[in-house]
């Protein structure tokens, strides 16, 4: 498939000899205007990739932080259409930062797979992570998305054994996402030593870059991860900054966007300093 923004960004990171920061925010959280503001600010704050959550009523693999962010976005009127509009708005100002849509299959299925891929491509989406589509269901959208020039990012987990791993990475493109714990988002954190071993195991099966997520909450943890992998994904902790900056009615307080972007900058610094320290 053609080279995507994701491929180009990982190539650039390799040239700079540093790991990447992937940040997750939910589209439309806590309201459409603030969400657009956050998204626009993320690249300058140091996000190398943006994972944009497509809100869903029943996020089975997510912990309380992302469940609540999904609920807030839906309450604020988020739909698949507004999510794609948000991406298009971002793309008018930023032609380089890769955007990966992440979520569950039903809203995509109901939108219509072909219509979704067409509109996502037109809006400037580069990759897809659909949590509840394992390789067994690759005909649904993984294969069509390749045809559309959008990377379908597969998740691998500690439970993905040696027999299964080659099959999972075979169809992958863009990068491979390693879920570092057996659990839901925003809960336990993996030990770096375990992450290192897991990434080594993955590298025996794929040349694709490896991003590690789930349970990465601090700049220090993110730095530890990019010392052994190609990118660190931070989601719940960032979404937590949204939650912390809501008033009693659930509305955004004035400092919300800056709090999210400030934390992104701290994470980015951690990630950027990691290899320098390692090299010294």
């Amino acid at each position: 498939m053609p080279v995507t923004r994701i491929d180009r960004r990982f190539a650039a990171l390799r040239r700079e000899n540093r790991g990447g920061l992937v940040v997750f925010v939910t589209a439309g959280d806590p309201d459409p205007r603030t969400s657009a503001e956050i998204l626009r600010g993320l690249p300058a704050a140091g996000a190398d990739f943006i994972e944009l959550g497509m809100p869903f009523s029943d996020p089975m693999a997510d912990g309380p932080a992302i469940q609540m962010s999904s609920q807030r976005a839906l309450k604020g009127g988020a739909t698949m259409k507004t999510t794609l509009e948000l991406v298009a708005d971002f793309r008018q100002r930023d032609g380089e930062t890769p955007i990966i849509l992440m979520g569950y299959y039903n809203p995509v299925y109901i939108f219509g797979v072909d219509a979704f891929l067409n509109e996502a491509k037109a809006a400037g989406v580069d990759g897809l992570i659909i949590v509840d589509l394992p390789p067994e269901e690759e005909n649904e959208i993984c294969l069509p998305s390749r045809m559309a020039g959008i990377n379908f990012i597969y998740l691998t987990a500690p439970t993905t054994d040696e027999i299964r791993l080659p099959r999972v990475v075979e169809k992958a493109s863009g990068f491979v996402y390693y879920v570092s714990i057996t659990g839901i988002t925003g809960t336990a954190s993996a030990r770096i030593e375990d992450v290192r071993k897991a990434v080594e195991r993955l590298r025996r099966h794929t040349d694709l870059p490896i991003a590690v997520g789930f349970g990465i909450k601090t700049p220090e943890q993110a730095a530890g991860v990019v010392a052994v992998a190609d990118a660190a994904v931070v989601g719940s902790a960032l979404v937590g900054k949204v939650t912390e900056n809501l008033d009693e009615d659930g509305k955004a307080r004035p400092g919300l966007t800056n709090a999210v972007l400030g934390f992104t900058a701290e994470l980015a610094k951690g990630v950027r300093d990691a290899r320098l320290k390692g090299a010294a």
Binding site: M60, A61, Y105, V131, D132, L133, P134, E136, E137, Y154, L155, T156, A157, P158, T159, T160, D161, R164, V168, V179, T182, G183
Partner: peptide, 8 residues
Amino acid sequence: FVAETLMP
């Protein structure tokens, strides 16, 4: 239609 963690 389940997450990879559960699939095995």
